[in-house]
Amino acid sequence: MVKIVLWSGLRRFTDGTLEFETAAPTLGRAMADLVAQYPGLGPIFDQGVSVAIDGDIVPPNPAMALPDGAEVHFLQQMRGG
């Protein structure tokens, strides 16, 4: 299983829940499952997000495999300088 953590601003789309367990094999599948459950997340994800997998901030590649036991944090999209 993989732990998914959303930022607290998304509480209003998820009935207050911010942490989820998922068996989804990939990041894309995990995101699609979340959107299926909470459609309000769809436009938010479409706008772009940043993702940290076990602390490493990486591009949100939908094909990325989620290793068992991983902790996946979603962050509002980071913009650099």
Binding site: W7, S8, G9, R12, P43, I44, Q47, L75, Q76
Partner: peptide, 21 residues
């Protein structure tokens, strides 16, 4: 405003960020 902005804020607020633990 984008989808992050809750209702009821001035239209000049175009993004809303909230996180914590």
């Amino acid at each position: 405003a984008d989808h992050s902005v809750p209702e009821g804020l001035h239209p000049n607020v175009v993004r809303y960020i909230e996180f914590g633990h």
